[in-house]
Amino acid sequence: MQIRKKIYWSLCVLLLAACRQSPPPSRPNPVLQLREMGQLATTEYELSKVVRARDEATWYKIGERRMLVSCRARIKAGIDLSQIRDIDIQAQGDKISIKLPAPQILTFSIPPENIRVVYSDVGLFRTPFSQAETNAIMQQAEKQIRRQADSLNMLQKAQEGAAVFVRNFFEQAGYKEVTITYRYQENAS
C-alpha cells in the first residue's frame, strides 16, 4: 500500500515538473509596405551559376536523384543619396566639393525566368523532384551566390560609377570644377 502511495506521489511531482512555459512563437519582423528612399544605382552585375544538387544520402531510399539548375542573378550597387547632408556639399563660385556616402549593395535579384532546370536524373525507385524541393535547392543556391558575390569587388566599381555620375550631373548643372570624395575615406585617413 505504501509503495503505491509513493508511486502516486512521484507521478504527481513528475507531472508538475513537466509543466513548463512554452516559448512564444517567433514572429517575422513587420515590413513597411511602401517606403520612400533615394538610392542611386550605378553598377549592375550579372552573375551566372550552375547549381548541382544530389539526393543520395538517405539510407532507406533506393537509388539517387540528381539535378542541374542554371540560374542568373542581377546585383545592383550604388550609393544612398538621401544620406548626403548639407555639410557634405561645399560650393564656391564655379567649384563644388561633394562628400558621398559609402557605396552599398542595393538590390539582389534572381528573376524566375532566369532559373532553368537543365538536367534531372531520377532513380527507378525515386519520385521526381517536386516544385517545393526545386525551390528549396534554389534557396540554398541563392544563399551561396550572396556569399560568393561579396568577393567580387562590386562596391569599388559602384563607387567609381557614382563619382562619374555625380561629377557629370554637377558639370551639366554649370559647375566647372567638381571634387568628389567619400565620407568613409575621410574617416579612415
Binding site: M37, G38, L40, A41, T42, T43, E44, L106
Partner: peptide, 9 residues
C-alpha cells in the same frame, strides 16, 4: 558588368 544610373525612390 555595366554602368547604370537609376535613381530608386
Amino acid at each position: 558588368v555595366r554602368s547604370i544610373a537609376q535613381l530608386m525612390t
